Computed example of a mutant assay.
Amino acid sequence: MTPVDDTLTPITRQRLMPAGSWNWHIPTPFSQGWRVGDTVFVGGQLSADEDGNVVGEGDIEVQTRNVFEAVTRVLESGGATWRDVVKLNTYYCCNETGAAVREFWEKMTRIRLQYLPTPGPAGTAVRVAGLMYDGFLIEVEAIAVVGSGDAITTT
């Protein structure tokens, strides 16, 4: 049996539920985010009002800005900023083809770049058939490490 090390400080956990964020229309235990030690986990943010209704239906630019503002609120409630974000996952719905897909992507990315510092986080973008409800075009989740904003870059 391994002895317990009583000298270790327990890691603190803080539930992040900033004002103005949407909530489920049915009771659930889900959270907008969590701060665990110096790490902030932002749950999937949608372009929704406080009642969960779609904001900016059919408009990827409006939805992207709204989603990134929601991520910002969760980050700030955990003591982080966009400079602290180390991982960004984006899920987006685009049922177009050809040049229309590129146009959709460019509109979304122009808004995203207004929030992301240089150098930016590690990122993943996944094109999906649908999100939680019809009308949502983008969902974003992030991981940040508080105080890591001054990145060391290598070439």
Rank of each mutant, 00 (worst) to 15 (best):
T97L: 08
P10F: 05
G44F: 08
F41R: 08
F30W: 15
A122C: 04
T2D: 15
R73L: 04
R127Y: 05
M17K: 05
N23F: 07
E96F: 11
T28D: 06
I143K: 05
L137T: 03
V55D: 01
E61M: 14
L116Y: 00
V145G: 03
T9Y: 06
D5K: 12
T90S: 13
D38F: 08
Q32N: 15
Q63C: 05
V67K: 02
V128G: 09
F68R: 03
P3I: 12
L131D: 01
G52T: 02
M108S: 04
T124Q: 12
A142V: 03
S148K: 01
I26L: 14
S148H: 13
Q32E: 14
E141T: 15
T12H: 11
A48H: 04
V71S: 02
I111V: 14
H25S: 08
D5Q: 10
T153C: 01
A125T: 15
T7S: 15
T12G: 15
F104W: 10
G130D: 02
A129R: 08
G123C: 10
P117W: 00
V71T: 05
T155R: 14
V67S: 02
A48W: 02
M17I: 05
C93L: 08
P29W: 06
I111W: 03
T28P: 09
L8W: 07
G135T: 07
G78D: 00
